[in-house]
Design a protein around this nucleic acid. Structure first.
Length: 203
DNA sequence: AAAAGCTGCAACCGCGTACGT
DNA sequence: TACGTACGCGGTTGCAGCTTT
């Protein structure tokens, strides 16, 4: 795919401490970066703190809807789509960033087993978490964990077969299985689907 | 100390769906 | 009903920072 994003390294800023960027702007922690190329009508690439502030201000007044209108009202050379993404994944005040707890991780694993890559649905069950964050966390942490588990499971299985412990092997099959394995379980053991977010499942 | 390789994650794109006219 | 636009989602990319050699 042709990448249209800005490639300038100086154009990129990073936040490793996972704090609210608006707050960082206020307290002056956030690193600044030069504005994107003047050649382009629409800015792409990393957001500046200035852009963040403008966007937050406009959303505070007009609400988080009509993203193209918000983009133009804020005077940002960004498309509505980009503004929406920035708000949803980064600027929202109720957002929780980093430090995914064991309980959350466990919930993500269970939900993923149940729903697959339906990141927005999974995020819907984790207050303050975004689909993007969960997707990233899955791809960088959990998928590896699962692979390791699978590997370990295969080793265990081999050992058991070698030992001729067929009964144990059958029991462990499920535990060693991958995400695509046909695990049978009672959905109700996992979640309460009375929640309106899961209306479609109930249907 | 420097280079190479790896990791995490912000932000992009394309596509499907919802909504308005 | 048909069409255009906006929105939301999942997949993917690529850079900064970290780790290893």
């Amino acid at each position: 795919m042709t990448n249209l994003r800005s490639h300038s390294s100086s154009n990129h800023y990073r936040l490793s401490n996972h704090t609210n960027p608006i707050l960082e702007t206020i307290i002056g922690v956030k690193k600044e970066r030069p504005a994107s190329s003047k050649r382009s009508q629409i800015n792409k690439g990393a957001w500046t703190s200035e852009e963040d502030t403008k966007l937050a201000e406009v959303i505070a007044v007009h609400g988080a809807k009509s993203w193209n209108t918000i983009a133009s009202k804020a005077g940002l050379k960004r498309c509505g789509k980009s503004c929406r993404l920035r708000w949803m994944n980064y600027l929202r005040p109720d957002i929780k960033r980093g430090n995914i707890s064991e309980q959350e991780e466990d919930l993500i694993l269970r939900l993923h087993k149940l729903l697959g890559n339906r990141w927005s649905l999974i995020a819907g069950r984790l207050p303050g978490r975004t689909d993007n964050e969960i997707k990233n966390y899955w791809n960088s942490h959990l998928s590896k964990k699962i692979k390791q588990k699978e590997k370990q499971g295969c080793k265990d299985e081999k050992r058991l077969v070698e030992n001729g412990k067929e009964e144990l092997r059958e029991e462990n099959k499920c535990a060693a299985g991958g995400e695509d394995s046909n695990i049978s379980f009672d959905v109700d053991e996992f979640f309460d689907f009375s929640d309106e977010k899961f209306e479609w499942i109930n249907r």
